[in-house]
Structures are given as C-alpha cells and as structure tokens.
C-alpha cells in the first residue's frame, strides 16, 4: 500500500497566510505612541517602551521585504537607508520644536510627517518613474514611519524624557546607521528561494532587540547620568528579548532548512 504525499500549498495560499504590512504598521504606530507616553510619564519605565518600539522595526522590515521582492535585490541596502533617512531627518529636525510641543505632540508630528514624506516619495516612484511594484507608496511610508517611531523612542530613552535639553547629538550617526541596518538586513539575511515573511520578521525581532542592546550600552556609558537607569532597563530587557527571539528564529530556520550540518572544528558535533 502506498501513501500519497500531500500536495504543496499553492502560491496564493502561502501569500494569503502572510500578515499585511499595513496591519503591522498600525500595531507599530499604536504601540509606539503608548511607549512614548509611558516614557514621558516615567523615564524609568523605559524597559516597557523598548518592547513597544520593537514592532516598528518588524513593520519596517516587512516594508523592505515587500519592495525588494519585486526585483530591488541589489537595492535592499538603498531602500533601507532611504527609509531611515526620511525617518531620522524628521526626528532630528523635530527636536528644535518648542519643548512643550515636542513633549506632548511629538509622536503624532513625527508619524504624520514621516508618513507623508514617505508616501510622496513612494508616489513619485509609482506615478512619475512608473516602477511596477504594487503598493509602492504604501510600503514606502510604512518604512519611513516605522523608522521615525523607533528613532524617536530610542532618543527619548537615551535622553530620559527631554531630547532638546541633553547633549545627545553625537549619538545621532550611530542611531541612524544602526536603525537603517536592522530595517534592511532581515530581508537581506533571509534572501533566497525559500524566503518567507515568517522567518524574515522573526529575524527582524532578533535584530531589533540586538540594536536596542547596543543603544542600551551607549545609554549606560553616556556622561548624562539621568539616562543611566532607563538605559540599563533597556539593556537588560533587550538582552532577554534577544535570547528569546534568537531561539524562536533558530527553530524556524531549522524547520525551513533541508539539513543543517556542522562544517567547523571539531568535526561531528551533533545538532
């Protein structure tokens, strides 16, 4: 008696299982705003805000994945840097607003400005340049808005409640490049014939927690002592998050991979 192997699911079914990026973005916006106001209420609760900032990186990585699946293979880094450039420029420019407006309305200003600029640039690519990528404008604003939310929360943690009053400006380049890398790399790292959203977004979670670990270390080492406790909280929760997410991601990698073989030294190490 022979048993028939189950047929692989059709491509449409696989795509139907994917979470739409716009849903991820809405979650990121809501959690980002809540995270910001938690920080504003009590900077020492930064460890909660950091957890609420991670969905922004996941949404941004989802946007990069969507755009780059349509043939921007060599441009993955470009699109990541571009999205973060818009988000970072918006956040860095808003710190000159009056402190009252900055503190109260900043997340809304940042999200709206990041979304509008991202949408306009995406629309230019869609309508003027005539790129044949579906939903390009939507995915573009997902990347820009997400990076803006993430950078705003990181800056707020490092300044422990007052960006305009602290000398944080020298950390801007590392915040910018770090955020760009974690938004663009999940797709680049998972690139290949078997790439799927589930694995890419799990890698995005790993990288989001990894970069907040780095920002936590920077915050602990800053001469501004008020940011020590918030940054320490961020560092500890990010390390825990990183350990958990790597475990989840590695499990998925094992599921998706035909076989994992140790090729290093010593030989014959089991997995």
């Amino acid at each position: 008696m022979t048993t028939q192997a189950p047929e692989p699911p059709a491509a449409e079914e696989v795509e139907a299982k994917e979470i739409p990026n716009i849903k991820l973005y809405i979650v990121a916006v809501i959690t980002g705003i809540i995270g910001y106001y938690i920080l504003l209420a009590n900077p020492n609760l930064a460890f909660i805000s950091v957890i609420l900032a991670w969905p922004a990186i996941v949404a941004g990585a989802g946007g990069v994945e969507h755009l780059c699946r349509y043939g921007l293979g060599t441009g993955t880094s470009s699109i990541g840097y571009w999205g973060t450039a818009v988000g970072a420029t918006v956040v860095f420019a808003t710190i000159f607003m009056s402190s009252q407006i900055f503190n109260l309305y900043s997340p809304f200003i940042v999200i709206i400005a990041g979304t509008i600029i991202g949408y306009v640039v995406g629309l230019c690519a869609e309508r003027i340049i005539k790129m044949k990528i579906p939903e390009q404008a939507q995915q573009s604003f997902i990347i820009t808005g997400s990076s803006a939310i993430f950078i705003l929360i990181v800056l707020e943690v490092l300044s422990s409640g007052g960006v305009a009053t602290t000398k944080l400006y020298y950390t801007f380049p590392v915040i910018y490049i770090g955020t760009a890398l974690v938004i663009l790399h999940p797709y680049n790292g998972s690139l290949g014939a078997g790439e799927n959203q589930s694995r890419t977004l799990r890698l995005a979670c790993c990288e989001a927690s990894l970069i907040t670990t780095l920002f936590g270390i920077i915050g602990v080492l800053l001469p501004n002592t008020t940011s020590f406790i918030p940054a320490l909280g961020m560092l500890i929760i990010s390390l825990i998050g990183f350990a958990v997410f790597v475990k989840i991601w590695w499990k998925k990698v094992k599921e998706d991979t035909y076989e994992i073989v140790w090729t290093g030294y010593p030989a014959g190490v089991p997995h």
Partner: peptide, 21 residues
C-alpha cells in the same frame, strides 16, 4: 553634527529616486 545628519538624510532620500530610474 545635526546639519551633517540632516544633509546625509536629504542626500540619501534624493539619491535613491534616480536609482529607481
């Protein structure tokens, strides 16, 4: 520092659009 970061941001925004072309 801030002007440099903003300039880098504007630079990256404008140099990716031609790459699409």
């Amino acid at each position: 520092t801030i002007a440099g970061m903003v300039a880098a941001g504007v630079f990256l925004v404008n140099c990716v659009l031609p790459a699409y072309v």
